[in-house]
Simulated assay, not measured.
Amino acid sequence: MNALEQAVTWLNDPLNWTNPGGVLDRLGEHVAISGAAVLLACLVAWPLGLWLGHTGRGAAVAVVLSNLTLAVPVIAMLTLLPLTFLGFGRAPVVIALTVFAIPPLLANAQTGVAQADAEARDAARGMGLSGAQVLRRVEVPLAVPYLATGLRTAAVQVVATAALASFVNGGGLGQIISAGFGLGMAVGGGQILAGGLLVTLLALLVEGVLAVVERAVTPRGIRRERAARPA
């Protein structure tokens, strides 16, 4: 059998799904790792990005911070972090993926607030709202579509990259791929391909779900404006 046939056979074996360390266990680990990383990144990037956008002086800072986090590859962090007090396992994976997820969340949060309608902002100030109230009641609601875009981008990137967790025994679907390599290409080629397909399908599922969410929270007028922009 070729690798594709081996992958189909491997995926059709119920024991590969239900046994300890099988697909269902690894899928749960993968989702937990990815969800924790995206959540932590949101807690860091969104408040900072919203504040930078509100002050009107945050574009350069957001770009610098994003570039700094992008400059360090995930695989490099996964090599270095286990050598610290974090050790091997999920903790270094979550930290590395959190750093990886920050740039799109930060950039979109800053842009969303910075591009909030100036007339709405001025009207809110004219009504006597403080700066914090303008941010909370006007700018953040107008920035929601941008926040959703950043969340979609970050989540898909993290889900796809979380397969690298297997390098530090962090669990996830990457363990299936790693175990396949341990068997050798002749025997484990189908398992390697099956693991890759599972990661791809999960990333596509997250992309699809969050695309629907993004569309739902984006006002129709903004969707028309985006569609009318030249490619």
Rank of each mutant, 00 (worst) to 15 (best):
A41P: 02
A41H: 09
C42P: 06
C42V: 14
L43G: 01
W46G: 01
W46M: 12
L48S: 03
G49Y: 06
G49A: 07
L50G: 03
W51F: 14
W51T: 05
L52A: 03
G53K: 10
T55K: 15
G56F: 10
G56N: 13
G56V: 11
R57P: 10
V61E: 05
V61A: 15
V61G: 03
V61D: 09
A62T: 14
V63F: 02
V63R: 15
V63K: 13
V64W: 08
V64K: 13
L65R: 08
N67V: 09
N67I: 02
L68R: 11
L68Y: 04
V74E: 12
V74M: 08
I75F: 15
I75E: 11
I75N: 15
L78M: 11
T79C: 07
T79R: 09
T79N: 13
L80V: 15
L80R: 01
L83V: 07
L83H: 04
L83C: 02
T84E: 07
T84G: 05
L86D: 01
G87Q: 06
G87M: 07
F88Y: 05
G89T: 00
R90M: 09
R90N: 09
R90P: 00
R90L: 00
V94R: 00
A96C: 04
A96I: 03
L97Y: 10
L97R: 00
T98Y: 04
V99P: 02
A101P: 07
I102T: 03
L105W: 00
L105R: 05
A107S: 14
A107N: 15
G112H: 02
A114R: 12
A116M: 10
A118T: 13
A118I: 03
E119T: 14
E119I: 10
A120L: 13
R121Q: 13
A123D: 01
A124L: 14
G126R: 10
M127C: 12
M127Q: 12
M127T: 08
G128F: 11
S130M: 08
G131Q: 10
G131I: 01
Q133T: 11
V134Q: 02
V134Y: 02
L135G: 00
L135I: 09
R136N: 01
R137S: 14
R137K: 10
V140I: 15
L142V: 01
L142N: 02
L142A: 12
A143I: 04
V144R: 06
V144D: 04
P145D: 07
Y146M: 10
Y146K: 06
T149C: 11
L151A: 12
L151H: 07
A155R: 02
A155I: 09
V156P: 06
V156A: 04
V158G: 00
A162W: 12
